[in-house]
Design a protein around this nucleic acid. Sequence first.
DNA 1: TACTGGATTCACT
DNA 2: GTGAATCCAGTAA
Length: 180
Amino acid sequence: MQKTVSKSFFSRPTLEVAPELIGKIIEYGGCTGRIVEVEAYTDDPASHGYRRTERSAIMHDTYGHIYVYFIYGMYHCLNFTTDKDQVGAILVRAVEPLSGLQLMKKRRGIDSETKLCNGPGKLCQAFDININVNHSRVGEYLRLYHGRAEEILSSPRIGITKATDLHWRFFEKDSPFVSR
DNA sequence: TACTGGATTCACT
DNA sequence: GTGAATCCAGTAA
């Protein structure tokens, strides 16, 4: 595999880190996958970090850590905390499966490779990511590698859309593995 | 202590 | 396009 992503990678401003996460390789639960879509949350009303609570404190206090929360009574969402000076986190919205496909298919109960991880809840189900990894450091249980990020960044392959007034989605253009 | 609604997904129309 | 599934953090009282 490639070089491990260091903690200092996440120390920078959230909007700077987010597009660079595209192309990084996640390894967890016996599976690997390439990040193809993320959503950047900073100090805006749509973010958990807008108000400091027991749950969102990790967004204020850490960077390079994992923030997992449970939503709609059925799904988990995977975030990386960012920015040593500000509130911030980046939601991983979609991943391109690379290895452990059979395991993912079994966990998801489907056979389509493009639909395996094309949504925040779906990828957590495929990788078996749950509240147990919440608060752990990146690299502790869930590993992150640089993969081919540089090649992607140097090409016009990253799309940006405004999710709300104050946070953005970054995705790999033309990837069949992005959400929706 | 009780209530409300969500950074979602899927089946169904 | 609409609605159900299903839990718990956050908030109000």
